[in-house]
Amino acid sequence: MKSLAELAEIRERMKNKVVLREGGNDMRVVVGMATCGIAAGARPVLNAFVEGVNREALGDKVTVTQTGCIGICQYEPVVEVFQAGKDKVTYVEMTAEKAEKVLQEHIKGGKVVEEYTITNAKKA
């Protein structure tokens, strides 16, 4: 059974890491979590990014956050990727599987996954 003692152990382990992380994040992944996003499937998309960032040990440079309605409900679930010095990238109609591809190719690899972007969706 999970115990509060385990939580105290996590605290001890994290103390040093917290110091290293301060000011280090340079990429932000924002998932739309308003009614439109939640109904369209944003929860598993968010979870995929949170788990993927941890699995790939990207926590020092990537933050995964939530936001409200972005105003393009027809394209939900919507994910925006912000990076210092670069244009914002908006990914639309996301799924957990697409999130994994974005994580590998864009977040890790630095190459935008054009086929999932809003620009591409509007062309179609």
Partner: peptide, 19 residues
């Protein structure tokens, strides 16, 4: 949980979320 974690570790730390 916050009482145990104190101010050092946020509740959305991945290991805390897993816990």
């Amino acid at each position: 949980l916050r009482d145990v974690l104190g101010a050092d570790v946020p509740l959305n730390n991945f290991e805390v979320l897993q816990w």
